[in-house]
């Protein structure tokens, strides 16, 4: 495994541990009830997970929309915009526990590994439809039902499995909805063997929100056109199927920096590590606003 991948995996591991620091909860089957849960974590991490010390932003968003008298979720939207402004989809690449799970599964050898296939581009829009329908419109229309959490969220299913193992009362209540969610979870995990991060690419409403702000987030990709030789190695290396030369700040880019690693001319950098200009006025850098 390349060095930058190891570093990113280490950051993902630490972020997952921090977001799930209530380790004794896993053994006792009890969730954390402290004040930390007033704050939403940046990634998809169910607040019903026994380890969770913060709240899931998507679950919290639906909390406000499913009330009989709808409250505008200023606080949750503000936190989401805050994460989006600083990190954009780097949240997906570095801080999301479910993203890490999918990546780890993709490391398992499997006869078929495929990232580019017909229909991939169209499927990318599905996550925006899920955001609009399951996180916003349906919870507003059908009160008391957080649609995304109830019928789709695989993070909640993992929490349910852990709680069912440790609490027989919960295990006895599991029914058809849980079976449905387990089928979704297994489908996503199996797909992860073949496709890199299928949930992030096609389903995740949180990724959909962050992707809208990727162009203006503080962390952006820069491609130095004076250095770029258009060899196409960056686009080939990108598992999210982004061409960094054409769209360095595509909503699909999770800032994993595999493209920068693949670039023989070191033309791709993050704007947090500013490119020094050597050729004065003629130097053109893609990705700058």
């Amino acid at each position: 495994m390349a060095d930058n991948k190891k570093i990113r995996l280490a950051i993902q591991g630490v972020a997952t541990l921090i977001q799930n620091a209530n380790l004794k909860g896993f053994f006792e089957g009890k969730i954390y009830t402290g004040p930390g849960k007033k704050i939403c974590v940046p990634g998809l991490n169910c607040y019903s997970c026994p380890g969770a010390i913060g709240s899931c932003p998507i679950g919290s968003l639906q909390t406000f929309l499913t009330k009989f008298k709808i409250k505008i979720p200023y606080y949750v939207v503000g936190l989401l915009l805050f994460f989006a402004a600083f990190l954009g989809r780097a949240v997906c690449g570095f801080l999301c526990p479910f993203g890490m799970i999918q990546e780890l599964i993709n490391l398992i050898p499997f006869p078929v590994k495929k990232n580019r296939f017909k229909g991939d581009k169209a499927l990318r829009y599905l996550k925006y439809a899920i955001l609009a329908a399951c996180v916003i419109i349906l919870p507003i229309c059908f009160k008391l039902t957080p649609f995304f959490c109830k019928y789709i969220c695989p993070s909640g299913t993992i929490a349910g499995i852990i709680l069912a193992i440790t609490d027989s009362a919960i295990a006895s209540k599991l029914g058809a909805i849980f079976t449905w969610k387990v089928i979704i979870l297994i489908s996503i995990l199996f797909s992860s063997l073949i496709i890199w991060r299928p949930f992030c690419k096609y389903i995740c409403p949180l990724g959909a929100i962050y992707s809208l702000f990727n162009r203006v987030s503080l962390i952006r990709l820069k491609v130095d056109e004076n250095k770029c030789i258009n060899c196409g190695k960056c686009a080939k290396a990108c598992k999210m199927c982004v061409d960094p030369v054409k769209t360095p700040n595509s909503g699909e880019c999770i800032r994993c920096m595999d493209c920068a690693k693949a670039c023989p001319e070191h033309a791709i950098t993050l704007n947090v590590t500013e490119i020094k200009s050597h050729s004065g006025k003629d130097e053109r850098i893609k990705g700058e606003q």
Binding site: T33, P35, S55, G160
Partner: peptide, 20 residues
């Protein structure tokens, strides 16, 4: 609103874990 987030998050969300 942080209090509303806390109130929801300190109880096991039955919908989230698949009991609804």
């Amino acid at each position: 609103q942080p209090q509303s987030v806390l109130e929801k998050a300190v109880k096991i969300c039955m919908e989230c874990i698949g009991i609804g």
